[in-house]
Design a protein around this nucleic acid. Structure first.
Length: 359
DNA sequence: TTGTGTTTTATTGCCTCC
DNA sequence: GGAGGCAATAAAACACAA
């Protein structure tokens, strides 16, 4: 034992237990410090089976002879080395001068310490002394027991924490995997829906292109036949001059990329076609000579082109058009037009809801 | 009985706190 | 500087299979 500071040897409670191991019945307790190992604060029920006021005494503070049946091996040899029948004080002296050997605490001592540990795992000096008295141990032994017990508790706590973390990790992992599956599922759904949407858009754009071309041809033909036809529902505020100067109306339907083929020289459909809240659909009729494009209650007269095209233009659509005083004028007075193209009647192309019901 | 692994008791060295 | 806690470790005690 190195001489660095602490040196703890022997037991100081002063009680020495000598047992007749052959009979397991004889117990001799020698107290070198009389009265120093009494037990007055032990739990009553815990001590009830103990006739002695200091139930843990007599084992050299360590071994209870009531538990001698479980004591074997080196513990037994420890007591066997002490021949109480033939050795007197010399033997006791020899015993006390023997190097200390480790002896385990009795079951009851351990139970008592465990109960105390459950109450408080730290040991105040007063409590330590009291426990030592109650158990017939050295205060240092009690302190060591608590210290080792705290170490064991810490190890178990770490194991518990590890298990908790492991379970938490497993739960999170499962959640993550489920989310991945859900994500893949949604992704595939998006792909399917995207394909469907693209197919639909492709189909509609083809129809729109055909319709644009047909409308263009109709416009050209009708404008040649009835160049001076007056509008039916033209607003009274629109002067004849204005009406005459109106030459272009956006009527084509379709995506912007489909427009180029449908454009004609007489169209200037890139401009927004709005009036100040006044619909001038009659102008469309004026231009096209086809009343089917005019918003009016009587909608029985469908354009013949509609039969040729799968796309049916619902005549109740309020075709947003605008009367330009002069087509050559810039659209400075009409800033920030909506995103339009020549085939969308002035509606933003993003407005798919609009197109959906015109199909 | 013995070898081996585990548990328990005890020591040592270092650290912090008062 | 002493008391006490803690981590690491030694060593005894114990359990158990072969």
């Amino acid at each position: 034992m190195a001489g660095t500071g602490r040196m703890y040897t022997g037991t100081s409670c002063g009680s020495v237990g000598v047992g007749d191991d052959s009979s397991n019945s004889l117990s001799i307790f020698i107290q070198s410090q009389k009265g120093s190992c009494s037990s007055h604060s032990l739990d009553a029920s815990f001590l009830s089976s103990r006739p002695s006021p200091s139930p843990f005494l007599g084992s050299r503070s360590m071994v209870s002879f009531e538990d001698v049946n479980r004591v074997s091996g080196s513990t037994r040899s420890f007591f066997q080395a002490f021949d109480h029948d033939e050795n007197g004080d010399d033997d006791l002296d020899e015993y006390f001068h023997q190097p200390e050997k480790k002896r385990r605490l009795t079951v009851n001592q351990v139970q008592f310490l465990e109960k105390s540990f459950e109450v408080e795992n730290k040991l105040e000096p007063e409590r330590k002394i009291q426990l030592a008295k109650d158990l017939g141990l050295q205060p240092r032994q009690v302190a060591i027991w608590f210290q080792n017990r705290r170490a064991r508790w810490k190890t178990k706590q770490l194991e518990k924490d590890y298990d908790v973390l492991q379970n938490s990790f497993n739960d999170l992992k499962n959640d993550y995997e489920n989310l991945l599956k859900e994500k893949d599922k949604l992704k595939s759904q998006v792909l399917v829906l995207t394909d469907k949407l693209q197919a639909k858009e492709k189909e509609s754009s083809e129809n729109n292109t055909e319709l644009c071309a047909a409308n263009e041809a109709d416009l050209v033909a009708l404008s040649e036949e009835q160049p001076q036809q007056k509008p039916i529902n033209v607003a009274e505020s629109v002067s004849e001059v204005e009406v005459e100067e109106v030459s272009k109306v956006s009527i084509v339907v379709g995506k912007q990329e489909d427009i180029s083929s449908a454009k004609s020289d007489i169209f200037d459909s890139d401009s927004p076609h709005y009036t100040d809240g006044v619909h001038s659909n009659s102008l469309l009729e004026m231009e096209t000579g086809d009343s089917s494009y005019v918003f009016e209650p009587d909608q029985s007269d469908l354009s013949q082109d509609e039969d040729d095209n799968n796309l049916i233009i619902n005549k109740t659509v309020l075709l947003p058009t605008y009367i330009f005083p002069k087509l050559e004028e810039t659209d400075d007075d009409y800033s920030d037009p909506p995103v339009t193209n020549s085939c969308n009647f002035g509606f933003p192309i993003e407005d798919h809801a609009f197109w959906s019901w015109t199909y």
